[in-house]
Simulated assay, not measured.
Amino acid sequence: MSLLPKDIGTLSRGVPPARTGTLFVLGANGGMSVAPGTDFTLLFGRNEPDVHVCVGVGDTCVSRRQGVISRTYARWVLTNTGKLPIRFPGSRLVLNGDRVELTSGYTPLFVVSPRQEHLLEVRIVAAQPRAAGAAGAPEAYEQDTSDREPRRLTPEERLVLVCLGRRYLQNDPQPQPLTWAQAAFELGGLRPGEKWGPSRAAHIVSKVRARLSRDHGVPGLVEDEVPQPVGNALNHNLITDLLVTTTLTKADLPLLEPPPGTPPQP
């Protein structure tokens, strides 16, 4: 067992070298890794003194001990011991008392609170294919593989989407996408030499929604799939997909820092 510091970033882009089957779990205040041969049950929840990994700190709707991850018959199994459901990528909910086997690779889990969804990152090191003629080679290690491929974005699309969804990345209790006017104002401050208006930001995001709907079948990104009034639903669904697929992470927030020497906006 070993502790993971708070500033490790995200597990979506790889983990330190570790044996196949090693469990990594990361919450808001850091995390822990557990080797597969260890007889150890990892506890997670909002009350730091009672758990190994914190999730939902400050949200009293989250249970002090929301769940456990234990080793059962050579598999890592998650059990929801709390009152709130835990959402897997997509819409699958694990309710109180339910047990679910975790798969190798990266899995973002979300404790679904009425106030917000709290992210708990889980990664299980997967065995890598042996190279031809490598019989008897040492056990493989995982560096930067993921079962869920992030969406491809251009640098401009990433900048606009990080700006649009910054409240989600900053753990706002009730996040909503920025309005087009707000996004254009912030982008204009970040790139004062360019002309940013609401229509330009809207056009860029609309193209991304159409592409992900067409090429990846992501639901809820076009008006025909969302009941009226549409409101922020299309952009909310887009940002949710980008977060679940780790296309956008907290590591993208520095994109919103103004260049050195940029005068403050009025």
Rank of each mutant, 00 (worst) to 15 (best):
R87G: 09
T79S: 14
P108H: 01
P85C: 03
D59S: 08
V57N: 08
N80Y: 04
E101L: 00
V53P: 06
D39I: 00
Y73R: 15
L102Y: 08
Y106Q: 01
L43I: 10
V112I: 13
Q66P: 06
T72R: 15
S104H: 15
L95H: 14
N96M: 12
F88P: 01
Q116S: 14
G45Y: 02
T107Q: 08
S113Y: 07
R92M: 12
A74Y: 13
V62K: 06
R46L: 01
L42Y: 04
V53Y: 03
G37Y: 03
S104M: 11
Q66E: 08
L43E: 10
N96I: 07
S63H: 02
P89V: 01
V57W: 02
R71F: 09
W76A: 04
G37L: 01
V57D: 10
V57M: 04
S91M: 14
Q66V: 05
T103W: 11
V94E: 08
R99H: 11
G97Q: 07
N47F: 15
L95V: 10
Y73C: 09
K83P: 00
C54E: 09
S104Y: 14
R46Q: 08
V55Y: 02
D59C: 08
G45E: 02
R115S: 13
P114V: 03
F110D: 00
R71Y: 10
E101Q: 15
F44N: 00
S113M: 08
V100R: 11
F110H: 15
V53M: 05
R87K: 12
V77C: 05
T41S: 10
T72Y: 11
V94T: 10
L43H: 14
T79Q: 15
L43C: 12
V94F: 08
V111K: 00
S91L: 11
N96A: 12
R46C: 04
P89C: 01
L78H: 06
L78V: 05
G58S: 09
N96D: 11
S70E: 14
T79D: 00
A74T: 15
R87D: 01
Q66R: 05
G105E: 05
N80R: 07
F88D: 02
G67D: 03
V55E: 05
R99D: 13
G45I: 01
F44S: 02
D50F: 04
E48C: 11
G58I: 05
L84N: 05
V68L: 10
V57C: 10
P108N: 03
P114S: 03
L109G: 10
C54Y: 08
G82W: 00
V51L: 01
E48N: 12
G97N: 07
T60W: 13
R115P: 00
V68N: 06
L78T: 07
R115A: 00
V62P: 13
R99W: 00
L84R: 04
V62C: 12
G90M: 05
F88H: 12
R115Q: 15
S63Q: 08
R99A: 15
T60Y: 14
F40V: 10
